[in-house]
Amino acid sequence: MLNAVGIDVSKGRSTVAVLQPGGVVIHKPFDVSHNSKDLHDLAHYLVTLDGETRVVMESTGRYHEPILHALSEAGLFVSAVNPHLIKNFGNNTIRKIKTDPADAKKIARYTLDNWTSLREYSAMDTTRTELKTLNSQFSFFMKQKISAKANLIALLDETYPGVNKLFNSPTRPDGSEKWVDYAYSFWHVNCVLDSGLKAFTERYKSFCKRHGYNCQPDKPAQIYEQAKALVPVAPKDSIYKELIQDSIKQLNLISQHVEQLRKKMDELASTLPEYNTVRSMYCVGPSL
């Protein structure tokens, strides 16, 4: 005997319908709250049904996850399907019935009609859900990084215009950038010019050594000559120094977090079976 369980998921509550072949209703549609007791009772009821039982629900963002995990951990066959598949299923009537019980029955009928092709929820689905969550956080902090960088450049345009274009070194694995580290030490044009070329050259070499950057012999002189042509509009005082250095600290913190998220995403994605196939495609790198 086949028991098709259709679950219409809502926030904090779901409607459950149980059908057998021929449209036989085993249980009138009923509501279940997403709390531990109700989910435990639902799992116990479904496990005790005679015959083979399969549960189908729509993949609705995050709302379906509590009931999906509870039923899967109880040993039930659970499948979360794309809502578009349910929407286009069985549209052979001109009547538009849109209620939770009707939707639950529709999902149960979909379960019966697609019994053999249903894909059971697995640990791989958990991995993909985690990747979606990481990607959401990655996008959120990337927006913050872009905003923080734009704010820093706007401040530096008043004290050291064009400092963000002095170097073309790539971003490091920890998220740091050479021009940002440079601007922390040389936040104003006069930080370069006041002590003269010789003293600046020594300070620049010390900066490169301290941060692990290559020091090209002719670079200090180039930077010094470029600085002589710049006209800062803000004075070299403690207020601007504090604003700029605090902005750099904030940017570095966000950049470091972004790169940590990027690394976690790549490590997690590498556990999926399709990872190596996708990475072998032309022009596909870690970020993509």
Rank of each mutant, 00 (worst) to 15 (best):
E225K: 15
L155A: 08
H64S: 12
D218M: 08
K106D: 11
H44G: 04
L152K: 02
E120C: 06
S206V: 00
D31Q: 13
Q226W: 04
D181T: 03
I26D: 03
A17Y: 06
L272V: 10
N35G: 03
K143P: 00
R119Y: 01
V231E: 10
I7R: 09
K149M: 08
D246Y: 04
R54I: 04
S14F: 02
D103R: 12
T133A: 14
V78S: 11
Y121V: 05
Q20P: 09
T171M: 15
T159G: 09
L46S: 05
E120S: 09
F200T: 05
A4M: 05
F141N: 06
D125H: 15
C191F: 00
T129H: 10
S117Q: 13
L272A: 13
F141R: 06
K87A: 15
L112P: 02
I94N: 12
P83V: 11
A17P: 07
Y121M: 01
A183Q: 09
L156H: 04
N82Q: 12
N252R: 13
K145S: 11
T15Y: 03
F186C: 02
Y121G: 05
Y282I: 08
T111C: 15
S280L: 08
R109I: 00
S36E: 06
V55E: 08
D181L: 14
P161M: 01
S270F: 04
E267Y: 03
T53R: 01
H84F: 09
I94P: 15
E259D: 09
M142L: 09
M281C: 13
S287F: 10
R62L: 11
R54P: 02
A70V: 01
P170H: 13
N92K: 06
P232N: 07
F140M: 11
D237P: 02
T171Y: 00
N276R: 15
S270V: 03
Y63P: 03
R119N: 07
P170D: 09
I97E: 07
K105M: 14
L272K: 11
P286M: 03
L2A: 01
M57H: 05
V284I: 15
D103G: 13
V278A: 14
G61A: 12
S117D: 11
E120D: 01
C283W: 00
W187H: 05
P217S: 14
P66W: 05
S10N: 10
N168I: 00
D100W: 02
E225A: 15
K236A: 14
K249H: 11
N35M: 01
R95Y: 09
K145W: 04
A234M: 11
Q216Y: 13
F207L: 00
L71V: 04
R119V: 08
A183H: 06
E225L: 13
K145G: 07
C283N: 03
L268E: 09
F167R: 03
Q137I: 00
G75E: 12
A227M: 06
L251E: 02
R203F: 00
K11C: 05
E130L: 12
L197Q: 10
R62G: 08
G75F: 12
A108E: 04
L131N: 05
E177H: 01
Y204R: 05
G162S: 10
I239Y: 07
V18H: 06
H188A: 03
S280I: 01
G285Q: 03
T93C: 08
D246K: 04
C208S: 04
V24H: 10
K96G: 06
S117C: 07
G22D: 12
Y45L: 14
S169N: 11
F140D: 11
Q226S: 12
R210Y: 12
E58G: 15
L166N: 05
C208D: 02
S195T: 10
